[in-house]
Nucleic acid binder design. Structure first.
Length: 556
RNA sequence: GCGCCCAUAGCUCAGUUGGAUAGAGCAACGGACUUCUAAUCCGUAGGUCAGAGGUUCGAAUCCUCUUGGGCGUGCCA
């Protein structure tokens, strides 16, 4: 809808240019904005075009605004009238019947309302969570999962061609420590008196895994193997089982992936070696002190970084170089990575690698998700996978449920710190904002259910929408007509939380309307029109909640 | 030391990419259930947008500095 107003403004600019009123056409002028007006007295939409362009056109803003208004042919548009306001804004007042047309669009497209019809955005790969398979997911991962998964759903709705991926660090030092951890627990289980190393994975889940391991067919092979082979076996076993658990937790959280990408594959397929060779050929990498270094330009990163250690082991960074270039070579225009903010120092490095391979560094967008502080009894709980002290995502899901947890994570921008108060989340479960939105959906659903139970005719086809002329009804129709704009802007900004706030605002308008106005009234025509409106609200709430990965209950 | 992120109501957070009078939810106070669900609604109160400069028609938003917090600064992941 904003686009519509923008087009009309540009058309007016062009007309003014042709008639000699201004010296430049829209193509030679800077971009301007169209925004939804906050206050009804400023109309429905406003543009700052005259303010932005006045300097370039050497005309006073208010004069330019007046000239623009005169160049708009109102007859052929949805605009009733325009006004110059304040320093030079143009306020647009829409014709009332245009809201009825928008309302009909909701019914026309149903669960696709707000979505782009065809694939129009870039081809993008969203990578998120990617936690090392060394232990269960904790709450911090849950935030990344909620943001990432909702972003995927949002981008798809906006017509982008999206794949999602989980990068599995299934090789390297951590896997070795994981294998040793399981191996030691296993031997302890066999009655051996050995001390468990402090820097290994202490969590109780490793003890449980050891029991499982002892009963698995794998252990049959052990007596024929020497210890390093046993540790490798244990490592593979632990990795596989822990990853199973992670997938299970994610699935409970409503999160699924198109692909789990194995780091081990990068090593074993030779892709890692090939990437390093290419860097050497390009003169971006060279051996020094027995290690292989990536040379950083001054504007890329503060210092050079090691790709292969003197021991011959490639670093995590080496894998990332190979992984990200591989992703681009798979044909993605845009890579979106969602990382914990503690990895932020890593961004310049990976961007530099992408540049080295001849791609623009803005092919990669990294969304940094800040840490979640867990609060219990007013105290911060510190978490560490290594020490085994953490609250798992699973525990939180069992306590507050997937809907509440997802919604909670998505009521905040991802780059701000977040306190997750467990007691509050539990206690608040009845007045958590998620229920406010879901309740609106349930209420509407129950209107239709009650109608059916009581044998009331709830058919709203051929409703006369002109009956919907209460200010609250107009406000609701305007809100519904915003949804496609909100969706595409949220996608553009990679900010799924905007959908959350939109839904809370829509629910607020609905609850207030519902309280004051009966839908199933005696007047058959009024009933029809209101049912039509209310069903559209239900559809939009449901569409929005689906993007957030939250359910739309029909009764609560 | 250097780098990145953050600071908005008592608390938890939004703020449409620089727009008009800074908004919600909790918590507080006062009202509304004989009604399609009170998990709701209506109202009151709550602010030096951390502080100081600067940029311009216009700043919570952009720039500089200061203060306070988080994180990073490994041939760890």
């Amino acid at each position: 809808m904003k686009q519509l107003v923008e087009d009309i403004t540009k058309k007016a600019l062009f007309k003014l240019f042709k008639s000699g009123g201004i010296s430049k056409g829209p193509k030679d002028l800077p971009e301007f904005d169209v925004s939804r007006s906050k206050d009804p007295k400023f109309g429905d939409f406003a543009t700052n075009a005259a303010l932005v362009l006045s300097k370039e056109l050497k005309t006073k803003p208010r004069d330019l605004a007046a000239m623009l208004i005169n160049s708009i042919d109102l007859e052929s548009t949805d605009i009733e009238r325009c006004e110059v306001a304040g320093p030079g804004f143009i306020n647009f007042f829409m014709k009332p019947n245009c809201w009825y047309n928008r309302l009909m669009l909701v019914h026309e497209h149903k669960d696709r309302y707000g979505h782009k019809k065809e694939l129009s955005g870039p081809r993008v790969l969203v990578e998120f969570v990617s936690a090392n398979p060394t232990g269960p997911l904790h709450v911090g991962h849950g935030r990344g999962a909620a943001v990432g998964d909702s972003l995927v759903r949002l981008l798809r709705a906006a017509g982008w061609n999206v794949d999602s991926e989980y990068y599995v660090n299934d090789i390297g030092n951590q896997m070795n420590i994981l294998g040793r951890s399981l191996w030691f627990r296993f031997r302890q289980l066999q009655g051996e008196e050995i001390e468990f190393p402090e820097n290994h994975y202490q969590g109780d889940y490793m003890k449980e895994l050891a029991v499982e391991f002892a009963n698995s067919p794998e252990t049959q092979q052990i007596r024929n193997l020497d210890e390093p082979e046993c540790i490798l076996l244990a490592s593979r076993y632990a990795c596989r089982r822990i990853l199973d658990g992670i997938q299970e937790d994610l699935s409970l959280f409503g999160v699924s992936y198109d692909k789990y990408f194995s780091e081990r594959y990068l090593h074993e397929s030779g892709r890692l070696q090939a990437a390093l060779e290419k860097l050497k050929q390009l003169g971006k990498a060279e051996e020094r002190d027995g290690a292989l270094w990536f040379f950083m330009d001054d504007d890329q990163d503060e210092k050079d970084r090691v790709l292969v250690r003197a021991t011959g082991e490639p670093t995590y960074f080496a894998s990332d170089v190979a992984y990200h270039t591989e992703k681009i070579e798979r044909g993605y225009d845009l890579l979106v990575d969602i990382w914990g903010s503690d990895h932020h120092g890593y961004v310049p490095r990976v961007k530099a690698a992408i540049e080295a391979f001849g791609f623009p560094s803005d092919r990669l967008k990294v969304l940094l998700v800040q840490f979640v502080n867990l609060i219990r009894d007013g105290q911060k709980i510190s978490m560490s996978t290594r020490s085994g002290e953490f609250i798992t995502l699973r525990e939180v899901l069992d306590e507050v449920g997937s809907d509440a947890a997802r919604f909670f994570f998505l009521t905040k921008r991802s780059d701000s710190h977040l306190d997750f108060d467990l007691d509050l989340a539990k206690k608040q479960s009845s007045d958590n904002p998620v229920y406010y939105v879901q309740y609106a959906h349930a209420r509407i659903s129950s209107i239709f259910r009650i109608a059916q139970e009581k044998g009331i005719d709830a058919d709203y086809t051929n409703a006369d929408l002109n009956i919907l002329n209460l200010p609250e009804e107009i406000a609701l129709m305007k809100k519904l007509s915003d949804f496609p704009d909100v969706l595409s802007e949220a996608a553009q900004a990679l900010e799924p939380h905007r959908i959350t706030f939109y839904l809370m605002e829509l629910a607020e308008l609905f609850h207030s309307y519902y309280h004051d106005n009966k839908v199933l009234t005696e007047d058959a025509e009024v009933k029809k029109a209101r049912l039509f409106l209310v069903e559209a609200i239900r559809l939009v709430i449901s569409n929005g909640l689906t993007i957030l990965g939250v359910s739309s209950p029909v009764r609560m």
